[in-house]
């Protein structure tokens, strides 16, 4: 079987590689998935007489820290992608490491936040407000964990690919950066919905 065309090389008339187009489509479906979750927030909130109806508030200070850490993680991997064209492998590795560490920190902070709420007798079943928040934040933690693994891939097994086929590696890094930018946007919306509005 021959190699699949345009796996690493850009198809001239579309200007895309298969991986980048596939990632864009995956992110489109993710937008719709998060859209479903956010629409639940809007629907339930617009019908609620009290919002939140019961339970402890979601701590704003921890939410702020989590947001900053998340944005740093996304910015680092995006910088790594941009640095790739300059062929500075050391800084790419360092930036990817920052992303992986920040992602782990984000997961830990949200976990701690959930524990604090549980100690205040506030769980997902307490109110629809908390149900939406717990659901979105848990689903997002899974996404961030996947993002951390992808960042770790860039430092570890990805390096072998970089030596063998730098274009394929660059494509994968671009796809990982797009994914992280999407995650950052999704969490920014979440933070605004629960801490600002």
């Amino acid at each position: 079987m021959g190699a699949i065309p345009y796996s690493t090389r850009v198809r001239p008339d579309t200007g895309l590689t298969n991986g980048r187009l596939g990632t864009a489509l995956f992110l489109l479906s993710e937008v719709m998935f998060y859209g479903g979750l956010f629409s639940a927030y809007v629907f339930l909130r617009s019908a609620a007489t009290d919002w939140p109806a019961a339970g402890a508030p979601i701590p704003r200070d921890m939410g702020g820290v989590a947001l900053v850490i998340h944005l740093i993680a996304a910015a680092s991997v995006t910088l790594a992608w941009l640095r790739l064209s300059r062929d500075s492998r050391a800084s790419v590795n360092a930036l990817s490491l920052v992303t992986a560490i920040m992602a782990t920190g984000f997961i830990a902070i949200i976990g701690q936040e959930h524990r604090m709420l549980a100690n205040a007798d506030t769980v997902a079943a307490t109110s629809t407000y908390h149900a939406v928040y717990f659901l979105i934040s848990d689903i997002h933690r899974v996404h961030v964990a996947a993002g951390a693994l992808l960042a770790a891939y860039m430092i570890g097994p990805g390096r072998t690919l970089q030596l063998r086929d730098s274009m394929a590696y660059a494509n994968r890094v671009a796809c990982i950066a797009w994914y992280w930018l999407f995650l950052a946007a999704a969490w920014l919306v979440t933070a605004v919905l629960f801490h600002v509005i």
Partner: peptide, 14 residues
């Protein structure tokens, strides 16, 4: 399929 299925997946989680 790509656009319409994800909201149901979100609803299934709920």
């Amino acid at each position: 399929l790509l656009i319409s299925f994800p909201p149901l997946a979100a609803a299934a989680c709920m």
